[in-house]
Design a protein around this nucleic acid. Structure first.
Lengths: 346, 346
DNA sequence: TTGAAAGCGCTAACAT
DNA sequence: ATGTTAGCGCTTTCAA
């Protein structure tokens, strides 16, 4: 029987329990100022009618929706997926639903989604802006609205009080990796990363240079290949790089796509890893861990990023909008595997 | 200046435009029965006040939220992430937001989330139940509620009218892969897949057996290793499998985790691919494509799954709840690469 | 075509 | 401790 499930309202419950709607509301929510008898009767009536409160109506009154928005360029990107997943887990534990939207790095879409979130009155927003320049625009949009937590991006200091953010210490990570390669004897090292438009890229480049500087080494061999987007880095680019006369003896490559391009290029050129070429992955993906030989990688916990971001947001939602820890800086570790060795003595 | 952005209501717009709220509503929504003058004045007033309608209030009246829920075991699983991403893209184009939730294969959580979706009055649900047995339970929950589209799962035929679903032809895919290996001369083939609790696993097993049957070959060598979950398949399991006396000469392995375990085991045992062991990946992940040697893989379009599911749901939401194409069956292709060859003649 | 008014289901302030 | 009531901001009859 496809019987239409009766959408029992709070009034039905009140009638069945023989009390007023106010009492039902109190009994079901606060539990404050409710006699045992009423509590029992209301619970029984609600159970009997299969009553489920209507969040919409409640939201209209309380001005809170119990939903937070999450805005990233692409949830299918492994570097975001785990963040989203971890954040959702923490938020759900707090009874909140998560709305996700992909911006595909389109600033217009980004603003449109923030506006949509606002219109839907979402309680808060987790966002990784597609470019740091776009911040100003959507910051205005978000201002006066729900609390915002930034995911691993730099944002303009808003009058000395920075937005809450969860940051990853890419600079220190890149420095550690570079230092390690220099220690092995490498002098011509290539850093393959998406452009410096966003914080992670900028920080990595800074760390990369810092390692050269602190070793007092001529940074002429510090090769930085910027990619507009990780999607653009084809095998061909890596091939060209590795076929240069004085080719890099080591490569630091981001993520899955770029790393994949580099590894394929090395294979095509019959460069043995690590004998002919040392490789460090930025981001510890399945690919890095399973490749033969296994790729030494910079690792940070995506779960921690998501969890910390959710935590920061929850804190803000709990009313502690003033103080409390407002930024988190997460560490990056170098996971040593089999893809690095001293450069070939020529 | 952190000036509080005035939350202009429809009444403010009405006052500013010098018309009634009803007229504003009509002017902004239907456009029906609205004089040019009123339309102009209302538009001007709305613009001036930066009016943004409150979806919550509207939802309370119209009983539609403009949001759909998406329920999968884990958005961070590459096999789901792209589905979610593609579905979100299609839904957003239709002006809908997507709420995601991870069930982590917990039936209780699954039911709880469906209830939450219902309570929130989401317009529709995209769901990949964690187990086919659980269907009944949440089907009841969902009944009388919003339209549901199933993602690659079998569901009990509800009185002859099946739930709308997007299915992938895993059976034919597995059969093609197995047939290919048999054609190369393999007789002892292992299929590594999560258990038969869900449709994909069941279908693959059926296709696997079908290939043996149609070749009229003793299926004694058809080894099926069921895993509770892809998470559980450690390298150790694969090692044990490959160290048996009459070990399989070919392996068909699912996804990233299981495939990774198999590849590592092969590496540890110094088994060369494809000389000593042929490997086929189920699901064309980055790992399969970039591995050396590149892994022959069964591929289906995750984007198509997500897009088709969204399309099916939109169709239902547009009121065509009665007829129309209610199920889609998507093809699986075998992408030939370098990981398969004839078995070693012993 | 337009305005007035009645709710959607709930919470919270107020009165008892 | 409990009942009554006034909205939250919007859509949508129903009159005019």
């Amino acid at each position: 029987m496809a019987e239409i499930v009766s959408k029992a309202t709070i009034r039905d419950v009140a009638r069945t329990a023989g009390v007023s709607v106010g009492s039902v509301s109190r009994a079901l929510n606060g539990g404050k100022n409710v006699s045992a008898r009423v509590a029992r009767d209301v619970a029984a009536a609600a159970e009997k009618l299969g009553y489920q409160p209507d969040f919409l109506a409640r939201s209209l009154r309380t001005r809170t929706t119990g939903m937070v928005g999450c805005l990233v360029s692409d949830v299918a990107n492994p570097l975001y997926a785990s963040i989203v997943q971890a954040a959702e887990a923490r938020l759900r534990d707090a009874g909140l639903l998560m709305v996700v939207a992909n911006t595909v790095n389109d600033p217009a879409r980004e603003r449109a989604m923030v506006a949509a979130f606002r219109s839907r009155r979402l309680d808060g927003i987790l966002v990784a802006p597609g470019s740091d320049e776009n911040d100003r625009a959507w910051c205005e949009l978000a201002a006066g609205g729900a609390p915002v937590v930034i995911l691993d991006r730099d944002v303009p200091q808003d009058e000395g009080s920075p937005w809450p953010a969860v940051l990853v210490d890419h600079r220190e990570g890149a420095r550690t990796a570079t230092r390690y390669l220099i220690g092995l004897g490498h002098r011509r090292i290539a850093l393959l990363t998406p452009g410096a438009r966003m914080r992670p890229g900028r920080e990595r480049i800074a760390g990369f240079h810092a390692a050269f500087a602190e070793a007092d080494i001529d940074p002429a061999g510090a090769e930085i290949c910027l990619q507009e987007s990780s999607m653009d880095f084809a095998q061909g680019d890596a091939l060209a790089l590795l076929q240069r006369e004085r080719r890099p003896t080591a490569i630091i490559a981001l993520g899955t796509r770029i790393l994949a391009g580099a590894l394929r290029a090395a294979r095509d050129l019959r460069l043995s890893i690590p004998a002919d070429l040392s490789v460090i992955a930025v981001g510890d993906t399945d690919l890095a861990a399973v490749h033969t030989p296994a790729i030494t990688a910079l690792r940070w916990s995506l779960e921690d990023v998501g969890r910390a971001a959710a935590e920061l947001l929850l804190q803000r939602l709990k009313g502690a909008s003033g103080e409390g820890q407002s930024r988190a800086l997460l560490p990056v570790d170098l996971v040593l595997r089999e893809s690095c060795g001293p450069p070939k003595t020529t």
